[in-house]
Nucleic acid binder design. Structure first.
Lengths: 222, 222, 222, 222
DNA sequence: TATGAATGAGATTTCATTCAT
DNA sequence: TATGAATGAAATCTCATTCAT
């Protein structure tokens, strides 16, 4: 049964120990996937015993679900906490992409978990996780687009829902490009980049991508 | 070792047997993921013996790689074979999205394999597969966009590479929405749909999405 | 090491706590067997901490042995305390069977412990427990049979030891029929009973069984 | 799920290998009980790999159930195959006890399994096994008793069902005395025997027990 | 004395792969 | 070439017991 909540024991342990376990779990689940992750190895890496993990969580499923939830909450706050609701659409979108990329660069494991959830064999986690993940982002995007239209800074007649979907699709794909070998190769091929993808390169190309997304919404084409 | 090619014996077996094995393999790898797929079950479903699979392929890795390659080739031809290069950008994009959705509806397992490849733990397959998958699509998209600009039917000053990347991101995300529980939930939340996602509903919404993609490129906003 | 006696601390705790622990232990060991009983679950059910159990007893073995001893003592006093040594054999046997059945109905867990002890894997407890359990009963049965023969109310030439053994075998089997699924099914098949085994049904059939046992000893067949 | 039947694979292996596995399984389950038996150790002792056991049986439950069934069938045929239905009750009972004791001496592990089944924690096996085990014996005993009454060689007015139950209780208890440490101690105490229980001793005492059982049924007390 | 978090040996079961037939 | 029984490494999870608080 998916409890999605650790046992009470987990709340009580030292924060550093807690954090280390969560980080290592996210890293391993990210690197190897759910099925490929070995609880024994996680225990070793996190500096706890196998048994302890089972005092914190009901089982592997429960742990995985918690780590995903935790990671998604971290990514959400990384993006939304620095966001000022009084900004206009363009600035908010700019912020979302930049904060997202910054988060993905610093904590790639959590973005990888997002890909994981969409993976086959993860169907049993999908319902539980997806609703809470996507709901807020979808609502926020649609809201700022509507506001932009009302303010006259966005194209009249814009399809709000589809535009939000589109922007988020690009957002997701960009973040995945930073953490998944497959998406990285894909990005390189589209943008005709050489092997390495340095921080500066990313910055430059991110400007282009954000610009393109904003053009999507602008009333008159540049 | 990734041979990426079946042993010669696989070429010699009856085409129906070959096809059945590939279909069932794609289905199982799709449903359960690479790690979750059991060769014994595949053998049973495909009506061959476990031993035979090992006479056709070097091992599970080799089989998986072949099935992915095969699936990606199928998806490519499903989309590009009916495409007339003399069509303008808009019609070509319209065709790509519709043919892609049609293919995903009929052979969802192959789209799922695409998600699989981007998954963590699949890194060792990524390099080998990604280059050939994405290369052609990227080149074709960039080419038609450039042509559209030259013909004056697309916005002047369009960022060709980024636009191609963007369109493909939307394309991928739409197809994933048809086959992955997570992406399906996400689509429902963005488009504010109820539970079911019937063929007709998809048709309607696909129109909106294609429209949005085309607007992205159009010189003057609708 | 089998100490067979709890640590001194166990004597000092509140009688209600003591009793509750013993009852729950008997119940669990009965339901699940020695190997199947989880000390953590016992602790929870008995309202004490796991640690406490280890301050009362040396370990699981020690606890088990004590619980068995305690249960066997309870069953012995339930049967023998109400027994008047001045009664004749027939009345004493009648009393033993009825008191035994009454005890088994009220405290089935203790009878189950008896079956447990005879079980394989319990060999290391057998010697220690069996001697004290069976010794007294055997001696008492043999004594009343001898007395009955002397008084001329039992068959002359009766094989005293074997008769005692026989009677006790029937006694044990009857009690087991009340508490073990297997023996219950067996009883139903011999007595041609339907599913349920109500208190009244048992009463009726108990009369028949006691009668049969007494006939075994009687000088002239009915 | 309790299949109670081995996978088809098990039927096909070499009889000697089959027999060795069944013998060792009965022995181990007997010595240690169900929970105490380690599949890995069984595999080693039986000279097969752990994996093979799982190709023969669904799991430990399935194996246990099969071994019990097999053992019960062996014990039944050991007793009933040499029995001539034209014999009178006394001779048939004599045969049953002697054949039972002979079987228990040669194949103690199978009698131990019988005790096992009655053990707590084995409830899930009880229904499935008990019916088939006890049904036949019960019917046969009742039938020969009825016949004896009709022939006038048994007491008129005998309680057929209870007598059959009684005789079987004694039978079971005698066999258990040969294989279970607890029942062995009990037997020694009732019959006032010293430590060892040699074949001859058993023979002598078996005579006494059979005699006692027969007296139970006889029309006039000896 | 009481607690319950921590431990890790050990149990069951799975499954990719081999190989004799 | 085809088969499927055999293998054993490896993975998840349990649980008696310890020990710091």
């Amino acid at each position: 049964m998916l409890r999605a909540m650790p046992k009470s024991t987990f709340d009580k342990i030292a924060p550093a120990k807690r954090e280390r376990l969560l980080r290592e779990a996210a890293r391993l689940f990210g690197e190897r996937g759910f099925a490929g992750t070995d609880i024994a190895e996680l225990a070793t890496r996190a500096g706890v015993s196998k048994g302890s993990i089972y005092t914190y969580f009901e089982g592997k499923d429960d742990l995985y679900l918690f780590v995903c939830r935790d990671g998604l909450a971290r990514s959400r706050s990384a993006v939304y906490e620095g966001l000022d609701p009084s900004w206009d659409v363009f600035r908010q979108i700019d912020h979302i992409f930049r904060a997202g990329v910054a988060f993905a660069s610093q904590w790639p494991e959590y973005i990888v978990l997002y890909i994981n959830v969409a993976s086959p064999g993860m169907a049993r986690f999908a319902e539980s996780l997806s609703l809470e993940v996507e709901g807020r982002t979808a609502d926020h995007l649609k809201q700022i687009i509507r506001q932009g239209i009302d303010e006259g800074i966005l194209r009249r007649g814009l399809d709000v829902e589809v535009s939000a979907f589109t922007i988020n699709s690009i957002y997701i794909t960009v973040l995945q490009s930073l953490v998944s070998p497959h998406y990285r190769i894909r990005l390189r091929q589209y943008l005709e980049l050489d092997q390495t993808l340095s921080a500066e390169t990313i910055g430059t190309h991110l400007d282009r991508i954000i610009h393109c997304v904003q053009d999507l919404l602008r009333p008159a084409a540049g």
